[in-house]
Structures are given as C-alpha cells and as structure tokens.
Design a protein around this nucleic acid. Structure first.
Lengths: 140, 140
DNA sequence: CGCATGTGGTTGCGGATGCAACTAATCCAT
DNA sequence: ATGGATTAGTTGCATCCGCAACCACATGCG
C-alpha cells in the first residue's frame, strides 16, 4: 500500500515545489534554485563573504558564484572587495533588496504554507522534527 | 541561527540523497535522476509505452525519452514498435535487467534505510504518512 | 475519403547544480 | 623572506530536467 518510497516522495514534492516557488519569484527578477536562499542569508547577515554564504546555504561554491552574479545583475546585491583579504568579497543587500525583504518573506511563507496546506499545525511540527532528524543523519 | 524551513529541509535532503543514490547506481551503468524509477516501472510492468511510463514516474515525457535511451544503451531495456499503434513503443526489460532487479532493489532499499537511519520504525511510518499528505496537497 | 484534431515520441533550448581545474591572494614553515 | 600549502572565487564541463516546438501516426467528423 505504499506506492512511493520516502525518497521518491521527497523527490516529487521537491520538484513540484521548486518549480512553483521559482514561478512566484520570477516577477521580481529572482531566478529559481537557491537564489532566494542566498538573498535571505545576505539580508540576515550583511558583509558575509561567499565562502561563508556557501556554508549557510549548503550549495556548491560554483553555484554561489553564479547566484550572486544574478542577484547582483538584478540589483539586489552589491559586492565590495574585502580590504583585509583581497581574495574575498563582502556581500551587502541593496536598498532594493531591503525594501523587498518583506515581500520575499511573504512569498517564502506562502510557499511553506502551501507545502503543508494538508497538514494540521501539529502535523507540521512533527514533519519538521522528522525532517530535521533525517537531515542530521545525512549530514553526518 | 534560524532553523531551516520544511521546504529547505526537503531540498537539502533531496539533493544530498540523489547524489548518493546516483553514486551507488553508477557502477551498474545506470545514471542518476529518474533512471532507476523508469527501470523499476518497466520491470514491474513489461510492455508499457513511454506515455504510461511518464505518468507512473511523474516526470516529463522528454525526460522519459532520454532516460529510456540511456537504459537502452546500457542494455537494460528493449523497445519494439507497437504493431497496434506504430507511433508508440513497447518497453521490455532485457535479461540483464531481470538479473539486475534484486540488486537494484537492494540499492534502493539501502538508500531509503540510509535516509531514515536516524528514525525509529514508528517515525518512518509517520514521515511516510505525512509526506503522502503533502504530496496529495500539491498534486491537487 | 480528406482534412482537422489528438496523441506518442523526439529534439532544441534554457536553467540549475556539482565536480574539477584553474587563478589570485594569503598563510605557514623553514 | 621564500616556496609550498591553503583558501576565495571563477570557469569549463557534464548531467538532469521542464517547456515548447515539432514530426509521424491515428482518429474522428463531415
């Protein structure tokens, strides 16, 4: 009675969800994938360099380079060379990004609500805790 | 330090998991992504055409074309033109695929066990049920 | 019949992402 | 200090995937 495994379900949910989220962000000039994660991290922690950011977002540093490039082109992020270490950049949100933050948050909230629209708040909590455990197991 | 959202957790888990699964399948000439899903579906239901298969696996029909192509090249799948409808192919597992089935199943089982290695069997059940609900909500 | 419509499958294109190789700057041990 | 590791970031290449345009065959309606 279980047509799909846990792995397959996550794969399906994720693919559908990512597409919907990308669709919601597109009108704001923000591409799909991790871009919104990067922007959120920069808003929460201005001045970070790309390496730290890569660690926050848990993607590849090459992906970081490309997403930051796109966010910069879209006018959400500014990069300045770090005078302490001229290999690295310090990343800051632009005015546009700061003004956009509440909108971004509302889009992400709506997305997470949609993901869990079939679940009671107790179930959401349970799912969250279980996924945390799963992730902790993989990370090790 | 804010915790990850449900959406982000699924994204993280899925990315790590897909990579590991692809790694486990590579020695057998099976690429990552949905390829194993297609092979499993063909083994379970020989003679299907690609359209039905696309529905089973829930991916795009273009992706089906490419994955079947790869499975055929790797010697796991044979295609014969359907004499009833010459537009479509009937898909069959090769001897190699049939011999491989138990191995494939063990790899997928190991993957799902690894995903849930931090969870009790009761928790696995709960996670499974919750993901089903989430998926049902998205599908609608 | 014959053309319009529908359907199975393929291909072109673009986006996302990881790995590996590379550049430039920094750090460290001698 | 100086050469070898290390580190921040970039780029090339490969894979995966969806959408849309397209082709060939099938079906249905007049």
């Amino acid at each position: 009675m279980r047509p799909y495994t846990v792995g397959k379900l996550m794969s399906l949910i994720n693919r559908i969800g990512q597409r919907e989220l990308a669709e919601a962000l597109k009108p704001h000039g923000i591409g799909g994938g991790g871009q919104h994660s990067y922007l959120k991290a920069i808003l929460a922690n201005p001045g970070m360099n790309q390496d730290k950011l890569t660690g926050e977002v848990k993607l590849d540093k090459a992906t970081t380079t490309r997403c930051i490039q796109q966010l910069e082109d879209a006018g959400y992020v500014m990069r300045t060379v770090d005078t302490e270490d001229r290999r690295s950049y310090r990343l800051y949100p632009t005015e546009r990004a700061i003004a956009f933050e509440p909108v971004l948050q509302s889009i992400l909230d709506a997305y997470n609500r949609r993901l869990t629209s079939n679940l009671s708040s107790r179930e959401v909590e349970a799912l969250h805790a279980l996924l945390h455990k799963v992730y902790a197991g993989l990370d090790a």
